[in-house]
């Protein structure tokens, strides 16, 4: 299929030699078809959810029987949903700040001082990279049951768990930014000028890695905001947006409008994630690739 891929190309200007990406008329049509299908696959579900959130009743016809703004109004003013949103926001914000606070000093020190820190971090980062969050969450539940049972089911434990699974995002972003800024030289120069370590971090390191901080912070925020498995397993009794959604999707009673409200909440969640992604993409113009969960591992293969 890679062959077909090559045949479909972009914009041939009929040069002397056939270009690798050039294609004939048929392959161009095939390419448009392919991209159209992919676009549809990604956009139609969102459209369906959007229509659902405005629909009065939608079980028989191609389009809903009628449209209403009631679901939006009811959902936005529902105190339980409001509290779920504020819990999720607080959870995600704390996760992002804790991750930045613990990762930046460690990443900085691993670059200027003790390279062994890097090896330890990389081993640790492989855990949430490879292991399912269900497994980590379950292990954390068992471990906290042994060590600190009073924390089970609390917000604190969930924040710690989210900070632990989201830290690689921050680490990869921050470490990449440090490499790009050449932080070793900068801090050496600052030292030569007589700056204290705190001054170096505050005046030299942080201003130079701001893009990494923003990116890492937003990615860990997003990871925590949409996280479901860990919230369900160790956050019993809490009410986050994914937990609320799970309850709604399971209580199938369409007449009560739970699906319509779920549609509204799904769109709101999606809007949050969309804004975050947009900021990340804008901030790193064209370099989205480095930010992905695979980045640390694929850096070896992917950095050019």
């Amino acid at each position: 299929m890679a062959v077909d891929a090559a045949r479909d190309g972009v914009r041939s200007r009929a040069p002397a030699r056939e270009r690798l990406r050039a294609g004939g008329r048929i392959s161009r049509a095939a390419r448009y078809l392919f991209f159209g299908a992919v676009l549809g696959y990604f956009c139609i579900p969102m459209a369906a959810v959007l229509i659902y959130s405005f629909a009065t009743r939608w079980t028989a016809n191609v389009l809903p029987d009628g449209y209403t703004l009631d679901w939006w109004q009811a959902t936005v003013s529902n105190p339980r949903i409001q509290s779920a949103f504020s819990t999720s926001m607080a959870l995600a914000t704390l996760t992002a700040f804790i991750d930045i606070a613990v990762v930046v000093p460690a990443a900085y020190w691993s670059r200027v001082r003790n390279a062994r820190i890097r090896h330890v971090i990389e081993v640790a980062a492989a855990v949430p990279f490879a292991l399912p969050y269900v497994v980590i969450a379950f292990g954390l539940m068992q471990f906290s049951g042994v060590v600190a049972p009073q924390f089970q089911g609390t917000f604190v434990l969930l924040v710690a768990g989210h900070a632990a699974i989201a830290f690689p995002f921050v680490y990869w972003a921050v470490d990449g930014a440090m490499a790009a800024a050449g932080i070793e030289r900068l801090s050496e120069t600052a030292e030569a000028c007589g700056a204290s370590p705190m001054q170096i971090v505050r005046l030299v390191v942080i201003p130079n890695i701001s893009s990494g901080l923003v990116t890492g912070g937003l990615l860990s925020f997003a990871a925590s905001f949409g996280e479901f498995a860990m919230a369900q397993i160790i956050g019993r009794g809490l009410d986050t947006v994914p937990l609320w959604s799970a309850e709604m999707i399971r209580s199938y009673s369409d007449t009560a409008g739970s699906y319509n409200r779920l549609a509204v909440v799904t769109l709101l969640t999606f809007a949050v994630l969309f804004v975050l992604s947009a900021v990340v993409v804008y901030w790193n113009r064209g370099q989205t690739v480095r930010l992905l969960p695979g980045a640390g591992a694929s850096d070896e293969g992917g950095r050019r």
Binding site: I98, N114, V127, F143
Partner: peptide
Amino acid sequence: LAAWLPAIPLLLLVSTCLIAPVLVL
């Protein structure tokens, strides 16, 4: 301490919330 201190918060977080749970399981 001088070599590891700044990394200790991260190492603590990671060992209690990632490594230990896996070992316990």
